[in-house]
Design a protein around this nucleic acid. Structure first.
Length: 263
DNA sequence: AAAAGTGCCAACCGCGGTTTT
DNA sequence: GAAAACCGCGGTTGGCACTTT
């Protein structure tokens, strides 16, 4: 998109200021009379009903059409973190904790990426969990350098793509360590997150939602490398819904941990 | 019993990137 | 191609509940 280059610094600064002022103005306009703070059950109901019947669409119009006096952003957050079906809610299991630790050591604070491997957990939940449970510990161990977002995204391109959560409608099977053929070394993927399926026997599967996420596109441009593993439906970012049969989040979740994770 | 400290989590904010106009 | 609108992400905050002093 915008490539400011070296000499574009001042331009970019001005642009940012202008844009920022504009956004601020918009924000102020939007916020006039916009509710903030905790959601009421009534608001939840309105939002859930609307999104369930109409789909997500544009969040700003969702807010309007659902009759909510909220910003679109706020609606999206509420839906994603609380109302969306398939959320597990409740205690994070030791297995999940293990995955979080492992993936965090790989990718740092890429909470949304990590969340894709933990169906039923939100990035916010994982972030909160990590902060309260591991942040302190990290201080005493070697911590990864904090990098600016744009920087870290570039660096992520150099990191290898993340692994695939449970594919839709494909019962996962445990992969024996012997069958992994050192893929983990090649691709920097935790060996514990390997899967095969009946249809994709001995293939490593990748999350389509990762590819569908704008900021991660660059990570997956190597279509030749990964292309054969993409065979998934964009409408089902967590792979919960199968083709012929319906797989619930809970099913997926259970399958993921009881069958998929190897300790 | 009360104040201070800590843990937890929902929600907001600012920013960067993408899509639409 | 530029500007506006929008989306999604990560960081941060504020408030409540619980624990410790």
């Amino acid at each position: 998109m915008l490539d400011w280059g070296v000499q574009g610094h001042h331009q970019k600064h001005d642009h940012d200021l202008n844009r920022h002022n504009h956004d601020l103005y918009q924000q102020q306009q939007q916020q006039k009379g916009c509710r903030k703070g905790p959601w009421t059950p009534e608001e939840d109901k309105l939002l859930a009903e609307y999104v369930t019947s109409h789909g997500e669409g544009r969040w700003s119009s969702v807010a309007k059409c659902a009759g909510l006096n909220r910003r679109g952003k706020s609606c999206r957050l509420r839906w994603v973190n609380y109302l969306r079906p398939g959320l597990k809610r409740g205690q994070i299991t030791p297995q999940e904790e293990g995955i979080i630790l492992e993936l965090h050591s790989l990718w740092g604070n890429k909470w949304s990426t990590i969340a894709r491997y933990l169906p039923g957990l939100t990035d916010n939940e994982i972030k909160n969990y990590w902060r309260t449970h591991f942040k302190k510990k990290e201080k005493f161990s070697s911590k990864p350098e904090k990098v600016k977002r744009s920087q870290s995204q570039k660096q992520q391109q150099e990191l290898k793509p993340p692994p695939q959560p449970q594919p839709q409608n494909q019962p996962s099977q445990l992969v024996s360590q012997d069958n992994m053929m050192n893929l983990d070394n090649e691709q920097n993927i935790p060996s514990s997150l390997y899967y095969t399926t009946s249809a994709f026997n001995d293939q490593l599967l990748l999350p389509q939602s990762v590819a569908a996420t704008s900021s991660d596109h660059s990570m997956f441009d190597e279509n030749q490398l990964w292309g054969s593993w993409w065979n998934l439906d964009d409408d089902d970012p967590h792979g919960f819904v199968g083709g012929s049969g319906q797989t619930t989040a809970a099913d997926s979740y259970t399958g993921f941990y009881t069958e998929g994770y190897i300790f």
